[in-house]
Computed example of a mutant assay.
Amino acid sequence: MRKKIVAGNWKMNLTLAQGEQLINDILQAGLKLKEGQEVIVATPFPYLQKAKSLLKSYPGYFVAAQNCYSEKSGAYTGEVSAEMLQSIGVDYVILGHSERREYFQESNAMLAKKIDLVLAAGLKPIFCCGEPLEIRQAETQNAYVAKQLEESLYHLTEEQLKNVVIAYEPIWAIGTGLTASAAQAQDMHAFIRSQIANKFGREAALHTSILYGGSAKPGNAAELFANADVDGGLIGGASLVAADFVAIIEKLA
C-alpha cells in the first residue's frame, strides 16, 4: 500500500573516493528489492551527481540531497536551490533534520517554504520531525510533533502530500545513552499517521511512508520495521558501513 524505504544520511562524512567505494560495496551485495521497496542515498552536495551515475541503472535506488535553501534563487552565496538539485537528477531532499533545526535554527515556517520549493521542482521531501529530551521528559511529545506537522505540512493539498515522506527522529534517544524502544517508535508513528488522517483523510494517511530516524542498526532494525506504522528508516552512522546498511535494508518487510 505504501513504500518501504531505507534512506542513508551520510551527513558531512567521506571523501568522494570513499563515497564511491561505499556505493559500489552496497550494490555488489546484490540485494533484490521487492516491489514497493526503495533505497535512498543522501550524500553531501559535491557527490550527488556521482552517486546518481552509479545508481541510475539499479531500479529502486535513489539519490537525496541533505538540504536545500528556502528561496528559489538569488544572491545567497553558498546556498543550493531545489531547482539546482532537480537539474542534476536528484530525487529526494531531506528537510528539517534535527541537526539543521538545532545548529542552523531552521523554523517550521522556513521548512514550509522549503517543502513548497522542493515539490515545485518535482522532487520529493523527506520531512523530519521529532522531540528533544526535555519535551519527552515532560510527556508533551505528541503536541510538539503535531505542531511541527501543522506548521510545515498542513498547507499542502492531499495530492502534494503523496510526494512527501515523513521521518520521525526521537532526538532524546540520539547520543544521550537513552534508547527508544520499538513500542515507543510505533506509538509516535501511529500518532503521526493519525494526525495526517485527521487533516488529509484516512486514505492519504495510509499511503504516507513514515520512517524511523533514531539510530537504527542491524541489531534492532527488524524489530522496528515489524511495527505496523514504521515503514523503514532514515539511517545515520550505520549507512556509512556497507555491511551494516545492507543488513538494515534486508530487514524491510
Rank of each mutant, 00 (worst) to 15 (best):
A173M: 03
Y154T: 05
V165E: 00
V165M: 05
I174R: 03
E169G: 04
Q160T: 08
N163I: 00
T176E: 07
A138H: 07
K147P: 00
A146G: 14
N142C: 11
E150M: 03
Y154W: 15
I174G: 03
L153Q: 09
G175C: 10
K147C: 02
K147M: 06
E169H: 10
V164Q: 05
S152K: 01
A173F: 10
T176I: 06
E150F: 04
P170C: 05
T176C: 06
L153K: 08
G177S: 04
Y154M: 08
H155S: 10
I174Y: 11
Q160D: 15
N142W: 10
L149Q: 09
L156P: 08
T140Q: 15
L153Y: 13
E169Q: 06
A146V: 01
I166M: 12
Q160V: 01
A173E: 11
G175T: 08
K147I: 00
T179L: 05
A167F: 11
E151H: 11
Y154A: 02
L156W: 13
N142H: 15
T176V: 10
N142D: 14
K162I: 05
V165T: 15
K147D: 12
I171E: 04
Q148L: 01
I166S: 11
V165C: 03
P170D: 09
K162M: 12
Q141R: 11
A173T: 08
E159T: 12
E150D: 14
E150K: 13
Y168A: 02
E159R: 03
I174V: 13
A146W: 06
Y144E: 04
V165W: 03
E150A: 13
G177C: 07
N163D: 15
T157S: 15
V164A: 06
V145W: 11
V165N: 00
E159P: 00
E169M: 04
E169R: 03
P170Y: 10
T176W: 08
N142Q: 15
Q148D: 08
A138P: 12
P170Q: 08
Y168V: 09
K162Y: 10
E151G: 01
L178A: 14
E159I: 01
H155T: 01
A138N: 14
L153H: 11
E158R: 11
A173I: 06
Q141H: 14
G175P: 12
A167M: 05
L149M: 11
L156M: 13
N142I: 01
A146H: 13
